[in-house]
Nucleic acid binder design. Structure first.
Length: 796
DNA sequence: CAGTGAGCGAGCTTCCGCTTGACTT
């Protein structure tokens, strides 16, 4: 029996540490927090100094009972959770829940998982820091109060099941605000002048700093340049250097993996978790850019042996982030001499990124020589500028170049870093070609998942462990969608001077196309506006920073945590109550104008089933004429839809003809345009406009769909036509009414009987919840089903 | 999933931060 029990948060960490400590120590993991506030309303007694009710959640019961048993047998228990607010609270919860004794409990901390760091920690134990614990309790209680008082206000005033919180509501606000900036943005056009001098390999580009907003000015400039002399007026060469970026934190890893590998933040974290569990990288949820001494030495050794002494440069990075808690190291390879690892291709690629970034962070800077040539024009006062760059020493660029968000692509294109041929002052240049191209100013960029994380981190909102889940939450609630949207064709003008002639051309480009960007939905915008109107303090971008400051004061023992909560809660709770009493229901209603034919009012708002258009006033006692309704399509929004677009929606659904004695209708559903016929549905291909579908086309599509379905069919049954055995993308499955049932490997789909199918369908768990963080025992499954049946019965 | 847009009104939903497995139409 080991004399010592040491408890850390992560099982992978426990395994490593056990190896360092030998037989006297058993090292176990708590798997994060082991207790949480109870789910019910009475979790916090606000009238009684915010007394909390905690419970061990079902999925933690086993961990807790095992730890309890081991703690009882051990002579000394070492609480080694992370050294930050949450970690201190975990230690305290362990102390309370496991029934530990002061005399036989020690609290230790370390920032890196290396043998010397652990041994040093064991030599310098301390007690649980209750100030830090109180700061965590204040954080936990505040988040619960905000979330569980604000969300019900939304259920009453907007729609059931919505949510609000200190972190998610600000994330949504950022996206809503950005979308409105983009909608408001007025693009300005101006002509940009680019000249090409010299021939072949000696050719280079020069630009005019000024731009012309009028075409005639640009044209005048070009015509002035006909036959003009171009001389190098000045030539300046300056050394320049570039330094490597710090090694990865969670947020920078998410950003680079998104830009360079195209991973979503959730994917990045899944892959990183695997790399961590296989022992290839250090912990992946961190806000620290710090590397341990051991790591610095290992990196040095690797750089020197692979690239030479010249490439190594010892560097210490400091976090710029005030909210960072730095309980861990930066994300780095565990062994720098492993340039690649075993694993699937996504693991290999992410590992390579991490390895390069960490290695580069300890390498010397890259050195350049930047040349700027100013070129005079004999017929004009302006001058052209040519920039060239020559790399003198590659330094860290040998392994890694950080990428940038593509916000200002206009300024960095056109050979900004190209090489210049050898030039001398006073040299006369031969103009090859000069062009004036119409360019447009660009609206601010929409957020990607990763750039939203970056922004949240800058604002100090959220933590490394919550960035990915927060992004999922705001999408799951329907506040935000990640989408691809088509751009618009835009015309632009190009004037080209070649020889003595100016050629004018009209060209087109596609602009505004987006891939994988975050768009607010109407419900997201309405919820946001409601919160901004009634709870501006909470969704203020600085709210978290201001409460964090107070948590810090609590942690330093300068402030009493319940006093802080009183100061926050009393006014907040009053706001909640008065909002419930006085606020109107929020629907985002907007009047678009009058119907051009009958003058009826046309308005848009969100309803139970999403955004829709209404023509005519709602029915009242005097007015019994019913209004007409139509749902908005994907990508349309009540904020931006025009009167014309709204009227278009009433052209569908439309009867396009008859087939086999039943009508065929074209309509638009959640997944796009479709034809319905005899309770069967066929999606319309993209290239067919739903308004122009002919009877013949519709019949053709229906028959094509039937043929395809027949090919998928393996067998059907006389007992019940609703039950079929089909061939799907992932192999054969049974379609049992609306339920899809996977066929076990030991059964042959060809010989399945109806009874076997029924048995398989019955064996499916009805309450199976999807999702990574789904809780199994969250609701009584029986409660939901009858409620839905009732609603359905109601309709008839 | 699929054209609706009232309301008899039960009982439900919801936060942020720590951690992993089991699961995938």
């Amino acid at each position: 029996m080991a004399k010592n029990l040491l408890i850390v948060e992560s099982p992978a960490k426990a395994k490593t540490i056990e190896g360092y400590l030998g037989k006297d120590f058993t090292v176990k993991s708590s798997y994060g927090h082991i207790r949480d506030l109870v789910k019910s309303e009475d979790a916090i007694d606000t009238a009684n100094n915010f007394t909390q009710k905690y419970e061990v959640p079902a999925d933690k019961k086993q961990v807790v009972s095992e730890l309890k048993k081991l703690a009882k047998e051990a002579e000394m228990v070492w609480l080694a959770s992370d050294e930050d607010r949450e970690g201190e609270a975990i230690s305290w919860h362990l102390f309370e829940t496991l029934g530990l004794k002061d005399a036989t409990t020690k609290r230790i901390v370390f920032h890196e998982i290396t043998k010397p760091a652990i041994l040093k920690a064991i030599d310098t134990p301390r007690k649980i820091d209750y100030n830090l614990v109180n700061a965590q309790q204040a954080r936990r209680v505040l988040d619960r109060l905000v979330g569980f008082e604000l969300s019900p206000v939304l259920w009453k005033k907007v729609k059931p099941s919505l949510s609000a919180g200190r972190v998610q509501s600000v994330a949504v606000r950022l996206i809503v605000d950005r979308e409105r900036e983009i909608n408001k943005f007025k693009s300005e056009a101006a002509f940009k002048i680019v000249a090409i001098f010299g021939k072949g390999k000696e050719a280079f580009k020069a630009e005019l700093a000024e731009r012309f907003s009028k075409q005639e000015d640009a044209e005048k400039f070009l015509s002035d340049c006909i036959g003009a002399d171009f001389d190098i007026r000045s030539l300046e060469t300056k050394p320049a250097k570039r330094s490597p970026a710090a090694p990865f934190t969670t947020s920078t890893l998410q950003q680079e993996a998104s830009r360079k590998l195209g991973y979503s933040v959730a994917r990045t974290m899944q892959v990183a978790q695997k790399l961590y569990e296989s022992g290839n990288i250090t912990y992946m949820r961190t806000d620290s850019v710090n590397l341990s001494e051991t790591a610095l030495n290992a990196a040095q050794q690797e750089i020197v042996s692979a690239y030479g002494e010249k490439y190594h440069q010892h560097r210490k990075y400091k976090t710029k982030n005030a909210s960072a808690q730095e309980a861990h190291e930066a994300i780095r390879p565990t062994y720098f001499n492993n340039h690649t690892i075993d694993g699937d291709s996504s693991e290999k690629r992410l590992y390579e990124l991490i390895w390069k970034r960490a290695i580069a962070s300890q390498m010397s800077e890259a050195q350049f020589e930047k040349t700027t040539a100013k070129i005079s024009i004999s017929s004009r006062r302006e001058e052209l500028t040519a920039n060239g760059e020559v790399m003198k020493f590659d330094g860290f660029l040998k392994v890694y170049l950080e990428s940038a968000d593509d916000e200002e692509e206009d300024t960095q294109q056109d050979g900004e870093n190209a090489m210049l041929p050898p030039l001398t002052k006073g040299q006369r240049l031969a103009l090859q070609e000069m062009s004036a191209t119409e360019r447009f100013s660009r609206p601010p960029a929409r957020y990607t998942e990763a750039s939203l994380v970056k922004k949240l981190e800058e604002l100090g909102i959220g933590r490394p462990s919550t960035y990915a889940p927060t992004i999922s939450t705001i999408q799951n609630r329907g506040y935000v969608v990640k989408e691809e949207r088509e751009g618009k064709i835009r015309n632009f003008r190009v004037l080209t001077l070649k020889g003595d002639a100016i050629v004018k051309e009209n060209k087109t480009e596609n602009t505004g196309a987006e891939r994988g960007k975050l768009f607010p939905t109407d419900i997201g915008a309405v919820v946001n506006d409601f919160l901004v109107q009634y709870f501006n303090d909470i969704v203020d971008f600085h709210f978290t920073a201001s409460v964090e400051k107070q948590f810090d004061e609590i942690a330093q023992g300068l402030k009493e945590w319940t006093a802080m909560l009183h100061d926050f809660y009393n006014p907040f709770h009053k706001e909640v109550q008065s909002t419930i009493e006085t606020a109107d229901k929020a629907t985002g209603e907007r009047e678009l104008g009058a119907h051009p034919e009958n003058g009826k009012k046309i308005s848009v708002r969100i309803g139970r089933y999403g955004p829709f258009v209404q023509v005519g006033d709602s029915a009242t006692e005097e007015n019994d004429e019913k209004p007409l309704y139509a749902s908005l399509r994907n990508g349309q929004s009540i904020e931006t839809i025009s009167l014309e677009e709204a009227l278009e929606l009433f052209k569908l659904p439309k009867v396009v003809g008859e087939y086999e004695g039943k009508v065929m209708k074209v309509a638009i559903g959640r997944f796009g345009p479709y034809i319905s016929h005899n309770s069967a549905f066929v999606s319309l291909p993209k290239e067919i406009d739903p308004l122009d579908v002919t009877e013949e086309q519709a019949i053709e599509l229906i028959n094509a769909k039937r043929k395809k379905d027949a090919e998928k069919l393996i067998k059907s049954f006389d007992e019940d036509p609703e039950v079929k055995v089909l061939n799907g993308r992932w192999g054969p499955y049974i379609e049992f009414g609306k339920l899809n049932v996977k066929i076990p490997k030991d059964k042959d789909p060809l010989t399945l009987t109806y009874q076997e199918c029924k048995a398989l369908a019955d064996a499916m768990p009805k309450d199976a919840k999807k999702g990574r963080f789904g809780k199994a025992a969250s609701a009584k499954p029986a409660a939901k089903a009858p409620a839905k049946k009732k609603a359905a019965a109601k309709k008839k």
